[in-house]
Amino acid sequence: MKADKGGSIVIMNSSEYREKMYRLLDDETTYAKIENPPTVQKLQNTFNQNVKKIISKLCNGKDTLCNKLFSSKLPELAYIYGSPKIHKDGCPLHPIVSTMKSPNKNLAVWLAGELGIYLGKFSESHNKHSVDLIEKVKNKNIKGHMVSFDVVALFTNVPLDKVLEFLQTQHNEGIFNPNRNKCLPGVDQIMC
């Protein structure tokens, strides 16, 4: 399998891999065990019904292109796998959830595109990559030391309710551009 960084190939005993994955999944603050998981068909039907309701509300009851774009067709369940972090002690796994064919994939891709244009607009501390950071600090007179912190499981530790509250505040302040794409609803409409 591929390493988390650097593109190296890692050979790991399958029992060690499963043990590390189970250890990740046993974290009840991040993952919840579902006793009777719904079928893919039930997930698809529920998702499509919700999309239809939202689009109908946004478009005054008209069936639109949006419904066709976001509705799920022939989905598969999302699955999780681990990518070894060979640069860390003990070679822990970086959990990756693949949603490539999940019911909400089209909506997620659209939402990422809609929100992606706002990266760096809410905070001056946002860096696109390490070269961006170097450009920002190279002409600064920094006294003392710069420190880099390693965040453990960043994405699973971001409080979703706080993110939604932040996005709602940005919407209320008119940050999102409702005229960016005429044929699709904007984030401003979804946040209503």
Score class of each variant (00 low, 15 high):
residue 63 D to Q: 07
residue 129 H to G: 04
residue 79 Y to K: 12
residue 151 V to G: 13
residue 125 S to M: 03
residue 192 C to D: 06
residue 109 V to L: 07
residue 84 P to S: 12
residue 19 E to N: 11
residue 88 K to V: 05
residue 35 E to T: 08
residue 57 K to Q: 03
residue 18 R to W: 02
residue 50 N to F: 08
residue 103 P to I: 01
residue 17 Y to C: 00
residue 36 N to F: 15
residue 84 P to R: 03
residue 141 N to E: 15
residue 139 N to G: 14
residue 192 C to F: 14
residue 99 T to P: 00
residue 52 K to V: 00
residue 20 K to W: 05
residue 52 K to I: 04
residue 160 L to A: 15
residue 35 E to C: 14
residue 139 N to Q: 10
residue 71 S to Y: 04
residue 190 I to C: 02
residue 141 N to R: 09
residue 7 G to L: 05
residue 99 T to S: 10
residue 93 L to M: 02
residue 173 E to L: 03
residue 130 S to E: 13
residue 42 K to H: 10
residue 131 V to N: 11
residue 153 A to R: 09
residue 6 G to N: 09
residue 83 S to I: 07
residue 95 P to C: 14
residue 100 M to N: 08
residue 40 V to A: 08
residue 129 H to I: 00
residue 105 K to A: 05
residue 162 K to L: 05
residue 1 M to V: 07
residue 155 F to R: 12
residue 44 Q to I: 07
residue 30 T to N: 02
residue 48 N to F: 02
residue 127 N to L: 14
residue 7 G to Q: 05
residue 90 G to M: 14
residue 190 I to K: 06
residue 64 T to P: 11
residue 192 C to W: 01
residue 22 Y to L: 13
residue 53 K to D: 15
residue 2 K to D: 01
residue 24 L to M: 04
residue 57 K to F: 06
residue 49 Q to R: 09
residue 50 N to S: 15
residue 142 I to W: 00
residue 21 M to V: 08
residue 64 T to C: 11
residue 63 D to G: 11
residue 190 I to R: 03
residue 169 T to C: 05
residue 171 H to P: 08
residue 117 I to D: 10
residue 153 A to E: 06
residue 97 V to T: 15
residue 155 F to Y: 13
residue 10 V to D: 06
residue 113 G to E: 01
residue 76 E to I: 10
residue 132 D to M: 13
residue 172 N to K: 03
